[in-house]
Design a protein around this nucleic acid. Structure first.
Length: 554
RNA sequence: GGUCCAGUGGAGAAGCGGCUUAACUCAGUGCCCUCUCAAGGCACCAUUCACGGGUUCGAAUCCCGUCUGGAUCACCA
């Protein structure tokens, strides 16, 4: 009679190492008490998902706060879905958000003593563990074809029982070793399945850092642990890797809760202590049918981190926003700390909401404006340059044409107690500031004639503008400038303030706001702009006069 | 369909048996302020915590049931 050991030897003759050898190769980490080892384990199947950024943010934070290790492991066992180069891209994007691993897969290199950190390079390690399982009758080769699998499923669906490869349906589980040997020798293709000893009628108690304790049915599926392509499945790789990489806390999306029993049984069977688990809520969005659904990369722009990058949101803003979802007390904290040093905030799993939050673009915008308003003009320049260099050539050239001029523009009402907050992202910066530039202004008025308030005729406007041109000097302080503008308005029949005009609408043509609006539109082509006084200062007398003349000549 | 998780305003949420006529933030609305916006200031925006029962002197908070939503059921992760 053929023994389990012989089957194991037959399948993995090349494997000579044992689990004990691996334990020695990857010794328990010497870290201080309470230090957490966390990991972000993306598969290279596309660019960074907003949900993944959320997860990695928390992994990073937990490790950092506890003085532990945060590493990245590339889960590239699904060779069919792999997209070349996406692994490196993932790491690059993480770096933009200041999420830098202490160890692991780093894109172009790997760092650390617990590697390799790319699953496809760890085949020898998985094989050692699978051989052990095989030797001890805890795993077996399964020769089931796709057709057979479909057949089993169809039968189960018809009988309305739980679908899957388990119990009496696990047909190759009951083969004798002699039969197995024969089939292997015969060259029949196979996978290796875990031999579950669980029963789904039994409940097991599980504990989760965010969900607390709850009960869940025991696993009884003989899941595939080793695919016919020679690579492990996620379930198995997770258990082996997180054990030997000495992960203390597994932080991952909520979608994994359902497979937790599988992982726990695997850990138990191997005699290993399972790590702590934290299953994070999923970021949602309202779908077309009005119901919540997971952010979808295919349907939602905001599902891809690259979308925010392309739009020119400062990375801090996204992180700050994600933190408000992560911890309900973060928002209050960051307000108290004036939107600074968010890295000092202490994260805790218990302050995490259990429900998936709806992605709130409005709130992101709010944080973004807040953050941009706090930057100095030099920081703004650097950020704008970094952004435009890859995403907006026109903007890049515009800034480069005169960096000081650009900074002057961006500095209007910036470095003061309550700075203006009208810049939200760099994606529309070109649009917002183009009027400051002579050529762009000229091009703009050629295409779109100035739109003044229809209460006034062009003659009214010209009258105001010509007087403003002659008499309104910008070589005085803002206060004087404004009084001056009021006075000019008054001589032409405009009320010095809105209140007065409202009280006696018949006595005036309008109010000083109308005067301001005429100047604003003539100079900027638009109804709203930064503080008019400073706009004029930045443009300079000569350019203001030139623009006024262009209008007066009409 | 089975299993698990969840259910406080437009959104994120606080709340842990009386201090709640439900905090705070975003969005929205209105008013105020020496220019449009922005900012700032001041108001308003859930008589009610998915629903129905129960426990209790007292419940958003505890118990039971119902409903609704989400996740998951692969040789994908």
């Amino acid at each position: 009679m053929v023994t389990d050991k012989e089957i194991a030897e037959l399948i993995f003759p090349e494997v000579t190492e044992t689990i004990d050898d691996l334990e020695k190769r990857f010794p328990v980490r010497k870290l201080k008490e309470g230090a957490e080892v966390t990991r972000f384990a993306p598969s290279p199947t596309g660019f960074l998902h907003t949900g993944s950024l959320f997860t990695s943010l928390i992994c990073h934070k937990v490790a950092k706060d506890s003085g532990g290790i945060f590493y990245v492991r590339l889960e590239d066992t699904d060779t069919k879905r792999e997209i070349q180069g996406s692994g490196e891209e993932l790491l690059k994007q993480l770096e933009l958000f200041n999420i830098i691993p202490n160890e692991g897969y780093l894109g172009s290199s790997q760092k650390g003593n617990y590697g390799p950190y790319i699953q496809s390079q760890r085949a020898d390690i998985y094989k050692v563990v699978i051989k052990y399982l095989l030797e001890n009758g805890k795993a077996y080769p399964c020769f089931c074809s796709q057709e057979e699998l479909d057949e089993i499923r169809a039968k189960q669906e018809k009988a309305k029982i739980i679908p899957g490869y388990y119990g009496p349906f696990a047909k190759y589980r009951y083969l004798t070793n002699d039969e197995r040997k024969e089939k292997i020798l015969n060259g029949d293709p196979y996978v290796i399945r875990f031999k579950s000893s669980g029963n789904h009628v039994h409940k097991i108690k599980v504990s989760d850092l965010v969900h607390g304790n709850f009960e869940i049915a025991e696993n009884d599926m003989d899941i595939v642990i080793f695919k016919s392509d020679g690579l492990p499945t996620y379930h198995f790789a997770h258990v082996v890797d997180d054990h030997f990489m000495r992960t203390t806390t597994v932080i991952r999306g909520e979608e994994w809760i359902a497979s937790l029993p599988i992982h726990l049984e695997l850990f138990k069977t191997l005699g290993w202590t399972a790590p702590k688990y934290a299953h994070l809520p999923v970021i949602m969005k309202i779908g077309e049918n009005g119901n919540k659904r997971k952010l979808s990369k295919r349907l939602d722009n905001e599902a891809a981190v690259s979308y925010f990058l392309k739009d020119g949101y400062p990375s801090e803003a996204l992180i700050m926003y994600l933190m408000t979802i992560a911890n309900s007390n973060f928002e209050e904290w960051i307000f108290e700390h004036k939107f600074e040093h968010m890295e000092d905030f202490v994260f805790s799993f218990s302050k995490m909401s259990l429900e998936g939050a709806l992605f709130d673009m409005g709130k992101l915008n709010f944080f973004s404006r807040e953050i941009l308003s706090k930057k100095t003009k030099e920081e703004i320049r650097d950020m704008a340059l970094a952004y435009s260099k890859t995403y907006d050539e026109k903007l890049y050239n515009l800034i480069k044409s005169d960096e000081n001029f650009f900074m002057e523009i961006m500095n209007i009402e910036r470095e003061k107690e309550n700075p203006r907050k009208d810049y939200e992202k760099f994606g529309n910066l070109y649009e917002s500031i183009s009027f400051f530039y002579k050529d762009l202004y000229d091009a703009s008025i050629k295409e779109n004639p100035l739109q003044f308030n229809e209460r006034f005729s062009l003659e009214n406007v010209k009258e105001v503008i010509s007087k403003v041109k002659e008499e309104l000097s910008i070589n005085q302080d803002e206060q004087e400038w404004f009084s001056n503008m009021k006075a000019i308005g008054e001589t032409l029949g405009f009320a010095p303030n809105g209140k007065l005009y409202k009280q006696n609408p018949d006595q005036y043509k309008g109010s000083v706001s109308d005067v301001a609006e005429m100047i604003r539109i003539s100079l900027t082509t638009r109804r709203n702009s930064p503080n008019l006084y400073y706009v004029m200062k930045v443009l300079g007398k000569e350019e203001c006069d030139r623009r006024f003349n262009l209008l007066l000549q009409k």
